[in-house]
């Protein structure tokens, strides 16, 4: 018994027989300064693209672990906005007599808003505590940390696309009552703006949560308030009817309001979105992403010490 064990140990593993040569570095390769690692967004992005596969894998992981243990799996992605739509449809439309914009079935009207909002709120609720829940990796291995919240946002985006299948079904169902034209292609820049805005908020708040755990507990409340400050269950035109100045303030300060209002205009009503507000929302989103990315990378160095 022991003799065979010794024999086994003594015999070199054939798989190990040829150690691979170490990564060949060009002799002129300079020592990189890990401390004063270039602080520009370009170099951060370069590093991020270098870890592209990791981002893909972590996004897949986010989706997998979320649906692996659930019986319904990806159906949950659809179920959330759909059930809300039914509930709101019954209470707000049927009982309270609330209406969408002219010529819009309420189901379609509310689902548009809920679909877009669910993406935003799911992304935030996973991304904001993500650095803390992933502390076991962050304190052990280096990789660009933005991958963590980013993969949460991307996973929520995949959910969003899945749930959009129902939306297409609704569009087909109501095709007689709505106007579909070339303006529908506005959804592509709209989704891009929403994605940017969501990433921007996620970067900032996930990093901020590492410093102050309070954020984690404040977030459900903030998301709820924000939801009511966004035209999801009601129409943005209602705000406009009340007061023009309030409306422009509302549309300037809340990019989510512009995004959801624009989705409805371009998909269901066949209208061009309000380009002035959309432009502002796009500008806010881009600036926010840049600023919060910079902030994130600035704080990143302390993550392992703080989480």
């Amino acid at each position: 018994m022991s003799a065979t064990a010794i024999e086994k140990e003594a015999k070199p593993d054939p798989l190990l027989a040829t150690p691979p040569p170490p990564e060949t570095e060009s002799p002129e390769a300079e020592l990189r300064n890990a401390v004063e690692w270039s602080d520009s967004i370009i170099s951060h992005l370069k590093e991020l693209t270098h870890h592209w596969e990791l981002l893909q894998l972590t996004t897949q992981r986010e989706l997998k672990i979320r649906y692996k243990q659930t019986a319904l799996g990806a159906v949950w992605a659809v179920l959330q906005p759909l059930s809300l739509m039914l509930v709101f449809g019954i209470f707000f439309s049927y009982f309270a007599g609330m209406k969408g914009d002219t010529g819009m079935p309420y189901a379609l009207f509310s689902y548009t808003g809920l679909l877009a909002w669910t993406f935003f709120s799911t992304a935030l609720s996973f991304a904001i505590p993500s650095l803390i829940t992933n502390s076991y990796v962050i304190t052990k291995i280096y990789f660009p940390r933005e991958i963590v919240p980013l993969s949460c946002v991307l996973a929520a985006f995949v959910d969003f696309l899945v749930a959009a299948v129902i939306f297409v079904g609704l569009l087909l169902f109501y095709h007689n009552e709505i106007t579909i034209n070339w303006n529908i292609f506005f959804v592509i820049p709209l989704m891009a703006i929403q994605l940017l805005f969501t990433i921007g908020v996620s970067f900032f708040l996930s990093a901020f949560t590492v410093l102050y755990r309070d954020v984690r507990y404040a977030m459900p409340l903030v998301i709820q308030v924000w939801m009511f400050a966004t035209p999801i269950l009601y129409s943005a035109t209602k705000v406009k009817e009340k007061s023009e100045t309030l409306y422009s303030l509302y549309m300037t300060l809340n990019p989510m309001a512009v995004i959801i209002d624009s989705y409805r205009k371009c998909i269901i009503q066949g209208l061009t979105p309000d380009l002035k507000f959309l432009g502002i929302a796009a500008a806010i989103s881009i600036l926010l992403v840049l600023a919060s990315y910079k902030y994130f990378k600035h704080l990143e160095r302390e993550f392992a010490d703080l989480v």
Partner: peptide, 8 residues
């Protein structure tokens, strides 16, 4: 201080 590393 500075840390310099020439490679992965």
């Amino acid at each position: 201080g500075k840390i310099m590393v020439g490679g992965s």
